[in-house]
Simulated scan of single mutants.
Amino acid sequence: MRVYLPSTLTAARTVLRDRAVPAGTAFAVTPALREWYSQSDTEEMEFVALQGAARACLRLLDADPQAPPRRFVFAADVDERILRVRDDLERGAVEILEPVPLGLVRAVHTDDPADTEAQDAVRAAVEAVLESDLGSEDAAFVVDGAEGFELLWFATQELPDLL
């Protein structure tokens, strides 16, 4: 199953060093996501899961204020036996029960490191994401501003250059 694991630039350095993405919350095409987007194809639903992981990156950045303001998502193909669907937390959420070897990562998605406008939008979204999660429409508007910047796709072997 394809999963999208949120991260930060700081944590991605640890992934490269340890050759594994740590266990934790990720996003995938789960039954609830499939039901909600029943008129969409798999590619569109995977994009929604990627967006869920990108939003989770904002929460990780909020917890690590020293990390550069860039969303970082690992896309990996994992055996379904190492995950538990957590649609009760958020549509598309899954819990990864063990570290994911770097060899299973198929791509890395991140904000353009040269785009200062995207970094500003991510920085503002980080400051607003918790309020957005609590229902603030103004904060949701700020978070949506960061989501307007698409994450770039990189091959796994480009990870050292991204860091």
Rank of each mutant, 00 (worst) to 15 (best):
M1F: 06
R2Q: 15
R2D: 13
P6D: 08
P6R: 08
S7F: 09
S7P: 08
L9D: 04
L9V: 15
T10V: 12
A12Q: 01
R13G: 15
R13P: 01
V15P: 00
L16G: 06
R17H: 05
R17E: 14
V21F: 06
P22D: 03
G24F: 04
A26M: 06
T30W: 14
A32H: 13
R34V: 04
E35R: 11
W36F: 10
Q39D: 11
S40P: 02
S40I: 02
M45Y: 07
M45P: 02
A49F: 02
A49D: 00
A54V: 01
A56M: 06
R59L: 09
R59K: 14
D64C: 09
P68Q: 12
R71T: 00
F72R: 04
A75P: 03
V78H: 03
E80N: 09
E80T: 14
L83Q: 11
L83R: 07
R91H: 05
V94R: 11
I96K: 02
L97A: 08
L97V: 02
V100I: 08
P101H: 09
P101N: 12
P101C: 09
G103V: 03
R106G: 04
A107N: 07
D111I: 00
D111V: 00
D112Q: 08
D112W: 08
D112Y: 07
P113H: 12
A118F: 07
D120K: 13
A121P: 00
A121E: 02
A121Q: 01
R123Y: 14
A125D: 01
A125E: 01
E127M: 13
S132F: 04
D133W: 02
A140M: 15
F141R: 15
G145L: 12
A146V: 05
G148M: 07
E150Q: 11
E150I: 03
L151Y: 00
L152Q: 14
A155Q: 10
P160I: 11
